[in-house]
């Protein structure tokens, strides 16, 4: 009951945030590019241009156009994207491409969490030992390398060079081997779809294709989680309640994994939530490098071609994801820390 109230309140509070994002993006996009240019080629007769402008409503005053966009948005019409081969409604494109992106983002998040948290713990409990030094260098590299550079290096070594050396290499583009397998989208997540139809080979093929982009995308988050986990763990291990736990005669293992871990996770979870928003940005770069048929590539093309509906649609979606992941973080927070439990 109280939890439901909390969620409802958060949703209501999210409305101004999302509205703000939409407003700013909409006006910015208008300033940066000329939407009319999408409809005009060299072969368009000059006389037709006023007609094109009028038919798309570009002659209306800006506030009116914005009002129309918002009205359509509220009615479930996110506009028509003009940057794809054939003009298509933004929502359709999102529905079609979103699974590829979110599958990649989730997988890289899982990699980052599964590796990052234990690495952070080990690094903290073995402070100043070789393991700690190696982990710290690994994490420092992760936060220091730009994704586009790291992605290109991965692709260069694990794909081009390994192929050239005759070693088993990782595929560098697409979600699966299109020549060998068929994929009929039911959920849109290949890993789930392939298991649903019982096609294990497609599953592993998809996993192989996902390995490089997912690691490329997840490395930054992995590094952030590791560093955060290490520092919060070190902080927590100095707390009085750890001394108390030791004075009870508990083993080091239980002290660390039961008493310290839960407290140390609290700041880490915040960082994970924020990083998930960052993953969506990273996806734009990663998908471009690895030729991944997701939303990121579409977003890049929308920006390059001044596809207003595309830019706005993508930004709105990212805003919704960030707001949702923040809500999820706050819910996890509550389960971890009784002091901020709702109600």
């Amino acid at each position: 009951m109280k939890l439901r109230d909390f969620i409802l309140r958060r949703i209501v509070l999210a409305i101004p945030v999302v509205f703000g994002v939409v407003t700013i993006t909409w006006f910015l996009a208008y300033i940066v590019g000329d939407p009319v240019s999408m409809y005009i080629t060299e072969r368009t007769p000059d006389a037709a241009i006023p007609g094109i402008i009028e038919s798309h409503g570009f002659n209306e005053p800006l506030p009116v156009q914005f009002f129309l966009y918002i009205t359509n948005l509220l009615q479930g019409d996110w506009g028509t994207s003009t940057s794809t081969a054939t003009d298509a409604p933004v929502l359709d494109i999102i529905a079609q491409r979103f699974p590829a992106t979110i599958e990649l983002a989730l997988l890289s998040m899982i990699i980052a969490i599964i590796l990052g948290i234990p690495l952070g713990i080990i690094s903290a409990t073995k402070k100043d030992k070789p393991v700690d030094h190696i982990t710290r260098i690994f994490a420092l590299a992760g936060v220091s390398m730009p994704i586009f550079w790291f992605g290109l290096m991965l692709k260069y070594i694990l794909f081009f060079q390994f192929k050239a050396w005759g070693l088993p290499y990782l595929p560098s583009s697409n979600r699966y081997n299109i020549q060998l397998y068929d994929h009929v989208a039911t959920t849109g997540f290949i890993l789930i779809d392939s298991l649903l139809v019982g096609d294990i080979r497609l599953f592993f093929d998809a996993l192989r294709h996902m390995a490089m982009p997912a690691f490329c995308l997840g490395y930054l988050v992995l590094a952030i989680i590791t560093r955060m986990m290490r520092s919060s763990m070190l902080e927590v291990l100095k707390e009085d309640y750890i001394t108390l736990a030791k004075s009870k005669g508990l083993t080091q293992r239980i002290v660390v994994y039961r008493h310290a871990l839960r407290n140390a996770l609290i700041p880490t979870v915040t960082v994970i939530g924020l990083a998930f928003g960052g993953l969506m940005t990273g996806a734009v770069l990663t998908e471009t490098i690895f030729n991944w048929p997701g939303l990121g590539r579409w977003a890049v093309r929308s920006i390059l071609q001044s596809d207003l509906a595309g830019i706005n649609g993508f930004t709105l979606l990212v805003a919704l994801i960030v707001v949702t992941s923040n809500l999820v973080v706050d819910l996890i927070y509550g389960t971890l820390d009784p002091r901020i439990r709702f109600g």
């Binding site: 707390e239 009085d240 309640y241 001394t243 108390l244 736990a245 004075s247 008493h259 839960r262 407290n263 971890l336 820390d337 009784p338 002091r339």
Partner: peptide
């Protein structure tokens, strides 16, 4: 221990 504010672990009953 000395300080009842900081010694119990805050996240456990």
């Amino acid at each position: 221990f000395q300080d009842p504010a900081t010694f119990p672990n805050p996240v456990f009953r």
